[in-house]
Structure formats: C-alpha cells, structure tokens
Amino acid sequence: MFGTTAPLTLFAFAPFDWFLDDLYGAFMEVLARVLGMPALEFAFMQRAYLAAICIGIIGPLVGTFLVHREMSMIADTLAHTAFAGVAVGLFVNNALSLSLAPIHSALVVAVGTALLVELLVQYGDVSTDTSLAMVLTGGFALGSVLITATDGGIAVGIDAYLFGSLATVSKASVGLLVFMTGLVSAAVAVAYRPLLYVTFDATAARAAGISVTWYNRLMVVLTALVVVSAMQVMGVILVAALLVIPVATADGSRSFKRSLLAGVLVAEITVVTGVTLSYQYGLAAGGTIVLTGIGLYVLSLVYRRLGVPTRMQHRTGRWRLNKLSDRTHGDATGEPKADGGSDDERR
C-alpha cells in the first residue's frame, strides 16, 4: 500500500525492529501457543493487533473530549479529507513518478483541514455543522475526482483505505501508530486540565484565562492525527466510530477520568474482538470492529436501562424494589428531587 519506500523512516531504526520482531513478536508467538491461535504467529496479524491496540488507546483518549463537546462529526469530516489526502499523494506519485507515502499527504491534508475547520467555525458566517458538512463532502469529492482523473490508475488499492484492511498494515505504518499513540497520549496528559475545563464550561474557562481557541485547535489537530493513523485498519468511512462508540458505551462512568479509562478499555475489547473475528471469518476489518463496538454499546445500554441484579438482590427481591424506589424518589441516596431532578434522570 505504501510502496517500497518506508513511509516513516524514523521507524525503520533498530530499536523498533527489535521491539516488533524480538520482543513483541516473541510474546505473540507464546500467546499463540497458549491460546491455540496460530494466527497470532503471522507477522501481519501481529502488526494488525498492535495497530488495533494503539487505535484502541488513542481513539477514546481524544474521542471522550469530542463526544462531550458534541463535536463527534469532526472526526468523520477529517477522515473524509484524509481520504482526499491519500488521493493527492497517489495522484502526485502517478503524475510525477514519485514514491511519496500517501499517509504523509493524508496527514498534511487532515491537519490542514482541521485548522481550516476551526477557523471556519470561529470566523466564518456559517454554523459548525454546515462547515463540517461542506468540508466533509468537499474532501471526498476531491478524492473521487483525483482518482478518476488518472483513468482509474490510482484506484487500485483504494478500497483498503475506504474499508480498512489488516493485511496492509506494514511495519512502517504500525511504527507510525506507535509513535502517534505516544504523541497523542502525551499531549492529552499534558493538556488534560485545560481540555477538560474547556469541554465542561468553555465560557468560564475563557474568563479564567485559558485560551479556548488554542485548545480547540489542539483538539482538532489531535483528532486529525488519530484519524489518519487509524484509517489503514479502520477505513476512512468507519474510522470515526472508534472515537465515538466506545465513549458512548462508557458513558455510565461516574467521573471524567474513569470515563476516559473505561472508553479505552471498551475500545480495546472492541478492536481485539473485531480483529479476531475479521481474520477468522475473512470479513472487512473496519466493519467488523465497528459492529463489535455497536454490540457492546447495545449491551451497555441494556445494562444501564434495566440494571443487572446481584444474585443476592435477585433472591430477596430487593433489586426490583430498588429500581422502583429510584424511579419514584429520585437519586440513589434517597435525597428528594429539589427542582425537577437531574439531567441524567430526565434521559
């Protein structure tokens, strides 16, 4: 997919090779024997699992902030413009006989678009969703025009970008993902407090001297990095799902920090299950991962709506009484609803 040139020569250096082949590879071979899963011995599956695990970390790490700022659509928009970036890279290669890695052009286009969207929202005379809709369709339109402009010459392999593929995860692209995981995790760790404040109450954060504009830009750039890094496994059309669905599944968490960690845990279960099913049944990786995520979300919804009684509660009938009590008297501590109850209760 990326040609013979390593897309990120940075990851061709010995320590990463040593980690991937000797350390991680050896661990996966042991795991393959222990679990009786020969697939784990294949190098491409080892890379696919590592890539998926990285996506499972950075997706919810950024997605939790996006979802609670009601900016989920931006991930989808940037994914579609990343597709345009891939097409630009392939087009330039085709026209000028170069061997640029399309993921590099995708990164440049997605980050540039992220900043453009932010500027449009801030200074443009249109609403956020209109800006996003224009950029999303514009990005995809550019991609499709460039593909057809070469008489289909660059269309070969484009399906892998659209729907995701496990087989095309090269050593270099998994290296990029590992690097991005470190970068995005470090950025979120350092900027956690201002990002949380801006997400929770942007006006108060601004009054308190926190640059909301700057942190908004940081958030969209991080989103672009996640989307481009993950698109090879997930596919352009589905990559946004991993920034959103695990976060929605983890919504029942009490605190923001727990919701962040729960989102990552849910995403890891989702990607590992999805990759396994995808390989076992020869299904599209992105689609299988997303459907697994939706399945977990439905389960969590059922759990949250109905509650799951402990064995003791079930035996004594206390669970049924507790649920009834919650509905008639408000919160779990038995405090009366002072003025119409809470937002969560109104859901």
């Binding site: 609670h68 407090r193 949380l196 404040y197 997400t199 929770f200 109450d201 006006t203 108060a204 954060a205 009054a207 308190a208 001297g209 926190i210 919504d251 029942g252 968490s253 009490r254 605190s255 923001f256 920090k257 727990r258 919701s259 937002d343 969560d344 859901r347």
Partner: peptide
C-alpha cells in the same frame, strides 16, 4: 485568570450529561 471566577448564564445546564464528579468540577 486566577483573580476572576465566572458562572455564565445556563452554565449549570451546559454541564449537561457529562460524566464529571462534584470534586472534578470544583477542582477546575
């Protein structure tokens, strides 16, 4: 910013359904 604290109109509504505890909110 340390010298100013602002509770904007409808700020409490804006908190919406976000999973933030009382301690987390006050710590901000």
């Amino acid at each position: 910013g340390e010298r100013v604290a602002y509770v904007a109109q409808h700020a409490t509504k804006a908190a919406g359904r976000m999973p933030v505890t009382v301690r987390e909110a006050v710590t901000m």
